[in-house]
Computed example of a mutant assay.
Amino acid sequence: MDQYLELQTKVNLLEYHQRLLLKMLSSPNLEFYRMVIENGISEQEVQGFYKLCEDMNMKMAEQKAEGFIHFHPLFSEFLYSLPSKFDVNEVVHSCLGQGLYESLFKEFQKCL
């Protein structure tokens, strides 16, 4: 039974990566998807990452409304929450390259 679950997990990962590859065929600049595939990141891990980015985006908007101009503490919180499969430099550059959460990652790029 354990081998079946492991095999099913691998099949699910391959199916997810195949869907991303198909998207990349028509738009080769999808750098975040490339990073996901190269690092063997699952769909659930990507969904968790998107949730983290949504949370960080809302916090940054609140901080900007309060007059913040430096976001190093928010970046530190992001680093702490980022799963180990994600390299922060690669994440920032690939998200900017793909146009994901641009305002957030433009600020985070300043913190690298």
Rank of each mutant, 00 (worst) to 15 (best):
G48T: 01
G48H: 10
G48E: 11
F49V: 01
F49D: 03
F49Y: 10
Y50T: 03
L52M: 09
L52K: 09
L52N: 07
L52I: 07
C53H: 03
C53E: 07
E54C: 05
D55R: 11
M56N: 01
N57W: 11
N57H: 11
M58T: 11
M58K: 14
K59N: 10
K59M: 14
K59P: 01
K59I: 01
K59T: 08
M60S: 06
M60N: 02
M60G: 09
A61T: 07
A61K: 12
A61G: 07
E62N: 09
E62S: 05
E62W: 02
E62I: 02
E62T: 02
Q63D: 07
Q63H: 00
Q63A: 10
A65P: 04
A65T: 06
E66M: 15
E66N: 15
G67E: 13
G67N: 07
F68R: 15
F68H: 15
I69E: 10
I69V: 13
I69K: 14
H70S: 14
H70Y: 15
F71T: 14
F71P: 12
F71S: 10
H72I: 10
H72K: 15
H72D: 13
H72Y: 12
P73Q: 10
P73E: 08
P73N: 14
P73W: 09
P73M: 13
L74Y: 04
S76L: 12
E77T: 14
E77I: 03
E77V: 04
L79S: 13
L79Y: 11
Y80I: 07
Y80G: 02
Y80Q: 14
S81T: 03
L82Y: 03
L82Q: 07
L82G: 12
L82W: 02
P83W: 07
P83T: 01
P83I: 03
P83A: 08
P83M: 02
S84E: 15
K85P: 00
F86A: 03
D87T: 00
V88F: 10
V88I: 08
V88N: 00
N89M: 02
V91S: 12
V91R: 09
V92D: 08
H93A: 02
S94C: 05
C95D: 02
C95W: 04
L96Y: 08
G97I: 03
G97Q: 01
G97T: 06
Q98V: 03
Q98R: 02
G99P: 01
G99T: 03
L100Y: 09
L100A: 01
